[in-house]
Amino acid sequence: MRKLLLTVGFLALAIGLLWIGQGTGVIGWPPSSFMIGQLQWAGYGATSAAIGLILIWQGQA
């Protein structure tokens, strides 16, 4: 169970950080992404990253 929490947590954190970067326009990859420059996706990314951090924290316990 611990490995699963850590794996899912790190994936959620990585995806969340990517979405934050795309939503704020800092990351322009892939160039054809509809999420680039859309602040709504930065919010989704922050939520995903927070959930990922919680899962990582729970996996450490």
Rank of each mutant, 00 (worst) to 15 (best):
G28I: 07
Q38G: 02
G37F: 00
Q58W: 15
I20R: 01
Q40G: 12
I20Q: 03
L55Q: 04
G45L: 03
G9R: 01
W29Q: 02
G52V: 06
L55E: 03
G25H: 03
G45Y: 01
L18A: 10
S33P: 01
Q38W: 03
T24E: 09
W41E: 01
F34G: 10
A61Y: 08
I20L: 08
W29S: 03
W41A: 00
L6Y: 04
S48C: 15
S48Y: 07
I20W: 03
K3Y: 13
K3E: 14
I15G: 08
G37M: 02
A46C: 07
T7F: 12
L53R: 04
L13G: 08
L17K: 07
T47R: 13
T24D: 04
W57I: 12
W29E: 02
P31Q: 09
G25W: 03
V8R: 02
L13S: 06
Q38E: 13
I54E: 10
L13P: 01
M35H: 05
L5A: 12
G21M: 01
A49V: 07
L6T: 08
M35T: 09
T7D: 14
L6R: 07
Y44D: 08
G9W: 00
K3W: 11
A49S: 11
I51L: 14
G45V: 04
R2E: 13
S33E: 00
L53C: 12
T7H: 13
F10S: 09
Q60V: 12
Q60M: 15
A12F: 10
T7I: 11
Q22V: 01
I15L: 14
Q22E: 13
K3Q: 12
L39W: 14
A12T: 08
A49T: 08
L13V: 11
G59E: 07
R2I: 11
G28C: 05
G59H: 01
